[in-house]
Amino acid sequence: MSPLLFWLFSAIMLGFGCLVVINRNPVASALSLVVSFIALAVLFLLLNAFFIFVIQILVYAGAIMVLFLFIIMLLDLKAEERRTMNIPATLGGLVVAAIFVCELFSVLRHFPSGRRAFPPLAAGNLDDVRNVGTMLFSRYNLPFQVVGALVLAATIGVVVLSKRELK
């Protein structure tokens, strides 16, 4: 767990996260979001979560973002023209986000156990995928099947929603 890599990739993640909000062109926003997700995946790697790292790259940076880009291009969205900003809403959003950040740092200041370094893992190879898989199919077997049903319901819902006219 190298501190340099951690700060580098969190800076990339937060910077491109800001670009998602700032960019006026939806395609540029979506591409910044891909970079942000990949940097986040590297943070998972630094935390020894190899399975989550692979899933993050495959599902988020791959499937979900391609779906977003696909829809942006399908709808043929142009860069947003500069409308009159809704000043109270903008200020309100920024103030609530700032209050959240202040609260976060005040909570972290009074959280002494978070100041300890990460405890070391056992020596040798970390059978990450096997351990996650074993747990998924033994202890979390029922939730896993429920999620399968949820994905099926989502698929059917998407097909129904994309029909030309709803009867």
Partner: peptide, 9 residues
């Protein structure tokens, strides 16, 4: 690296 750094990010 400490837990607080990750939580802050």
């Amino acid at each position: 690296m400490r837990l607080n750094d990750y939580l802050a990010v």
